[in-house]
Design a protein around this nucleic acid. Sequence first.
DNA 1: CCATAACCTGAATCTAGGTTCATTATATAG
DNA 2: CTATATAATGAACCTAGATTCAGGTTATGG
Lengths: 191, 191
Amino acid sequence: MPDERPLRADAARNRAKILEAANRQIIARGPEVPMEAIAEDAGVAVGTLYRHFPTKDALVAAVLYAHFEEMTLGAEAAADRIDAGGSALDEFTALFRFILENAAGNQAVKAAARSLGAPMDEDLLRGRGVRALERIIAAGISQGDLRADMTIDDCHLFFATAPIDQPAAVRERWFTLMMDGSRAPAARPAQ
Amino acid sequence: MPDERPLRADAARNRAKILEAANRQIIARGPEVPMEAIAEDAGVAVGTLYRHFPTKDALVAAVLYAHFEEMTLGAEAAADRIDAGGSALDEFTALFRFILENAAGNQAVKAAARSLGAPMDEDLLRGRGVRALERIIAAGISQGDLRADMTIDDCHLFFATAPIDQPAAVRERWFTLMMDGSRAPAARPAQ
DNA sequence: CCATAACCTGAATCTAGGTTCATTATATAG
DNA sequence: CTATATAATGAACCTAGATTCAGGTTATGG
């Protein structure tokens, strides 16, 4: 592995513009958005996309990776705040609201993940991500707010089922049902 | 509108084979499955698909329609059983399990619905379907088993979020969380 | 049995979108 | 300021998959 020699300044700038454009376009039009569209959005020629990413899938994967990373960071921050004395239920709720509204970002990103067989899901979630989530869940259970049988797998459900392409009211309702279903029966608000 | 003259016997047979093949292929490979694949599965030439359906979207829509119809019929039967003295919660649970496992059938059909803007969702659900679901929900609430704020819109969530492409264990877990979230707090089983 | 309208076939056409690469432009080491 | 390795450009190429249609089949009324 010959150590990567640094990118030329303009190349680095373009790479960033491409990633931003790809994210924007994928969110707006789904992962099937044409490379041309991404190129135009980035103010660059198609060829340039291929200079930075060997294939379209690679570009989409890079965008996905950024999203997963953002989620992981959010989870770790939440776990840390719990250790510092915060409410596990509050952090759990806030984290998944954050994921719902921002990180998973939209149906498109989910679709992209699916269309790639989401291999990186494994990587990141099996790494720092899961560890942080496990800390949060364990705290929530021991604090008596989360149902005792909740596991890391339930978190997959949030990713897998969030109706991100639906109107805000629908998303909100889903969030409510899901959260109520996640609580310990005793901790459930009287509707 | 000149009244449809009846299909020739062989044509009717082929139409049925095409619909079956399309359903099978869409379930197995998603709505982007090539027309050729459907034709082959049906034991027919591509041209024949186009004799029966003006466009690929029309064929996919026809498959979707059948699914929605099946769900509608199931809902009506459930509502009738409740009127005849059945448990609303049991029927509600059974109906959505049925929808989860069979009718919505799979992520593919859902994806197809999405890729078509799901106009028929409206049609059927605004018709007999909603009426049946409303009867079921109303009964569930008055019997004290469903959360009092549950509405027909919550049913959309089942369609929109069912993780049908996930392993059975995951689907089952989702079902549990969703159902627990749908119950009246008092009626919730002690986990 | 025929006539003929209905049907079916499948090669050919058309198009969108991914990918390549010869050419031209530009950053930057020295 | 130059030389040159890096980059960017975008027209051309290629493939998959939707759709068409000229020509061959077949069901069925009479």
